[in-house]
Design a protein around this nucleic acid. Sequence first.
DNA 1: TTGAAAGCGATACCAG
DNA 2: CTGGTATCGCTTTCAA
Lengths: 344, 344
Amino acid sequence: MVQIPNEPMPSPAPRAVPTSADVARLAGVSRATVSYVLNNTTAVRISEPTRRRVHEAAKELGYVPHAAARSLRAGHSRMVLMPAPNVPVGPLYSQFFNELQWALSRLDYTVVQYGGLVAHGDEAARAWAELRPVAVLVPVGGLGPQGVAVLKRSGARAVVTMGPEPVEGAHALLMDHAEVGRQAAEHLLARGRRRIGVVMPTEPGLEIFSAPRLRGVRSTLDGSGATVTELPMAYEEESATGLAARWRSLDLDAVFGFNDEYAMLLMGALQEAGVRVPEETAVVGADDLLLGRLLRPRLTTVHLELPSGRYLAELLDRAVREPGGLLEVQEKALDARIVHRESS
Amino acid sequence: MVQIPNEPMPSPAPRAVPTSADVARLAGVSRATVSYVLNNTTAVRISEPTRRRVHEAAKELGYVPHAAARSLRAGHSRMVLMPAPNVPVGPLYSQFFNELQWALSRLDYTVVQYGGLVAHGDEAARAWAELRPVAVLVPVGGLGPQGVAVLKRSGARAVVTMGPEPVEGAHALLMDHAEVGRQAAEHLLARGRRRIGVVMPTEPGLEIFSAPRLRGVRSTLDGSGATVTELPMAYEEESATGLAARWRSLDLDAVFGFNDEYAMLLMGALQEAGVRVPEETAVVGADDLLLGRLLRPRLTTVHLELPSGRYLAELLDRAVREPGGLLEVQEKALDARIVHRESS
DNA sequence: TTGAAAGCGATACCAG
DNA sequence: CTGGTATCGCTTTCAA
């Protein structure tokens, strides 16, 4: 039996995907007319009966335009691409991204998170570039000047990075997590602590945050006579318990817990092990999670403020519309400040 | 001044994006040859010098293939699309997604999360269909049979839903959160509780989970003589405090806190208000977060088990390769069981 | 007001 | 072994 394209068959046969040509045929008009009608082209006036016929035909066939064909023809897309985070992100980031996505789609962009293998930076850039996004937003790390160049050459009119340091050619939203460590360290120093531990999560992927935070602690404590001890720890009860068990031998009077979750976990383990908080050991977290306020003692933390999603969306939109003008601007976009509670 | 396409201009001019034709010209071969070389086509043998010239030309121009053109020509893509969640998701979901993305990209799929406006289900389906994904994975709710039909007509060879009930035409991974409520309710009933509150988050978007969980509680308690009281609550300290302040007037002896986070928040507020847990009021959460084990009393919770990302990836791959065969299968994919600790 | 046709970039057939 | 060329679906200019 011969398969006749464009001639609907009984259900089990995989009908071909309807195209605008099919719509045109069914409506008895040309493909051009279909395009005019479905895109509400104002430069051309189409008679009302024709419009109706086209719309009806489109609905009957279940016609959906082909984005690839469209953007191929147009020479550009309105896709904003960002790599999907490959580590569980906290509510802070989630909310920021949601806000951003919402704002961008208000501006008529298609927001797409590209997931999968975390290829090495410039490798990944090639994969992203294949999609010819109009803008690329890279939340953190992993994109070098090479990658930026590839993206730009592929038509990206804006590349925005959110990392600790500017990347050549890209608009950098500077989010230096060293500041988080600095805030924590300054606070502990001011409270008279001198032997300071820093939790380093062993989960892969988190170095991007933990390394600069540690660096911040170090830079602040440098020359103060205080000591810094790295404390590898996994986000698991056993790991925290193990660390707490040998706490006394570490001889520390304070610990910066990387973030609230690790800090809470460790604080619980310390208390269980009979280490008094904050008397014997002060504990400081980061992120200012709601739950930190529930524990006793209440957790001292570094409150983080990200830029608003709307702001970033507008920035991106401007960069897309006036390429070159806004690029290479650098902004300090991460606001960190200590919130003193009871654990320190 | 006239802009001449394909004729490189001094730096400030936005050079056109290099195409395979540019590569061909620079290498002194035809476009076909470029395609053969860059795709390692085995059916055709290309001389080594030619290969080298092509590769060099491609590198020199920074050539990146155009995914849209490619998939337009090919008639299909290897894009797996899923809507980006529009509510902050917990570590459970995050990990599941990461695993899934990783597994899919191992199978050579391009995983893309489509973000933005949460258009109404079948509306959104059209937007997704424009990208002509080979498969669509809808984590939760918001896709009706209509939407599935649109996607299939647009060439999607697999549509997988993860929701409380099967959707016609789609492969359903049944994740009925009613089971979570049932587990909690059964447990509380068995512990002699009869006046049971259920926290209902006021944050938009969470009804998708809270409604079925409530339904599960109701269905279990139905006919047992126990009462169910809905407790609207926001994930904010004031909201929890307010609820705790009028706790005694509610006359409840147990509460199911929606999930661990809400439960912890409420439990903290209750304790602050002098309500003894679990003596006066038992508290049960869900998700089995690590932090729940840190509180005193330790939080009783409903442990959730999602299918493995690898499993789902393979399922999807099979469905793509043998369309029709695997569709409309339904699997119970959410495993929920109570973990009794001290708060109940 | 509508239609014919060119062309976006990549691929694969068929000649040479 | 390599080069023309038709084609995918859509938009848009130019003619009718």
